[in-house]
Design a binder for these strands. Structure first.
Lengths: 240, 240
DNA sequence: TCCTAGTTACGTACGCCGTACGTAGTGCGC
DNA sequence: GCGCACTACGTACGGCGTACGTAACTAGGA
């Protein structure tokens, strides 16, 4: 029996091929791709060991030869889609590069709506995450600051992207596990909110809703948030 | 059978007492408190319908008279701890007030480490969330900007707090579901990271780790992040 | 005042889940 | 060519959310 579990491990430190027995039928990439396919199509909750095994065409328990725990499967998934990041030659304008990074990550998360839920610093050192991080640091070469500050900047940008995309996707993704439609859900919640606001107990909320500047442009909100964050770093500059 | 499920609803729009039958044995507050107690002590994953019912001292299915779906239980939990926010008379200095709000929320999340995982804009309109939001807007009265911008500011501050506390708690909370200790987990991951960096493939990461400015002060990192975000808003000011 | 309809309480059961364990077959390193 | 570490995978256990059915109860309308 291999490192079936029960003792600490990182999936990346496990060799894919163990030399001794019959050659494994699947690669880690194939397994990750199968899981990603399911998550994209049916949501993260549909990614069960049984389901992924079926997608691969093998018995459920065979999966455990490749992935000691379900969490490791999640780690494979995050790394797999992290590989979709396009890395370019830094332009010399770190602000522009960081904006480009952020927009790319946002697009990635829209392509894989389950990704925000799996975002964790714990997964931040997978192979593709390291490539991505190194690329961000390269983009920040022109930014005069310590590496500590640069890492804080990268963390902040990633955090803002994750937060905003989570919010953008919240109702849609939530509806997946509900027996009614998103429109119904939204309608009910907005009706309740309206009734609370009409109670007069929240005058500023009422004023905010009275402003009513038409439909919200989520991408514009996102862009403004990013701009402000980068402004905050530019002001502090290399200090701290 | 009551609105047992199957059609859209908001838990807050359901009357607690339905007039007709025997008087309910528990209040919503009692149920939320029981769930919160379990989550605090054993983690969010331990909050199952069976477990909460047992904590209350009733049969599992009786819970469904109060809470049509498990998700509604989560909503009750978030609202319950949101009630722990201390609201004060705005000081007139919106930056100071927002910092205070942020530090208080951070403390709240440290007290209830499962909270970041349940943070969702969908839950943002529960009774206590509305009180909190109204208070934030009151603190922002001296901030010259549209309510749209103010709401963006509140969202940003909340987002940053959630992100940073999530990161602070990540390894600790993760260990809860693992059969080994956090120290072992950390050691294994750091060893792997070290080996990757030693490979020379990530020169800037290597340089970043070489800086090694001693143990990280998480609270200081948090404070810096907040300061930068507020700076970003102060610069833009009322524009946009 | 009594009837009844809608409520509460809750046991049982179904179909999922992660995964421990045991067994059989396979092919590399010695 | 032998043995052993590996792969493959069926079975089974304990837990989950929750649909459904039944019995007890009580407030409203007659």
């Amino acid at each position: 029996m291999a490192g079936r579990a029960a003792e600490p491990h990182v999936i990346w430190a496990r060799p894919e091929r163990a030399g001794r027995g019959p050659r494994p039928a699947y690669t880690r990439d194939e397994i990750a791709a199968a899981a990603v396919r399911i998550a994209d199509a049916e949501g993260l909750d549909a990614v069960s060991m049984r389901h992924v095994a079926a997608e691969l065409g093998c018995g459920t328990m065979s999966l455990y030869n490749y992935v000691p725990r379900k969490e490791d499967l999640h780690e494979l998934m995050v790394d797999a889609v992290s590989g979709e990041h396009e890395l370019w030659e830094p332009s010399g304008d770190w602000r522009a590069d960081m904006l480009r990074v952020a927009h790319q990550t946002r697009a990635l998360m829209h392509r894989h709506p389950w990704l925000p839920r799996l975002m964790s610093p714990v997964y931040g050192f997978s192979p593709n995450a390291l490539r991505y991080l190194e690329h961000c640091l390269a983009c920040l070469d022109p930014f005069e600051a310590s590496y500590g500050t640069k890492l804080e900047l990268v963390a902040m940008v990633n955090g803002v992207v994750t937060t905003y995309v989570s919010n953008e996707l919240a109702t849609t993704e939530r509806t997946r596990s509900l027996p009614w439609s998103q429109e119904q859900e939204d309608a009910v919640r907005i009706a309740y909110l309206g009734s609370r606001i009409a109670s007069g107990a929240y005058p500023r909320m009422a004023a905010a809703f009275a402003e009513d500047s038409g439909p919200i442009d989520l991408e514009a909100v996102f862009r403004r948030a990013l701009t402000r964050v980068l402004d905050g770093f530019e002001r502090t500059g290399g200090s701290a």
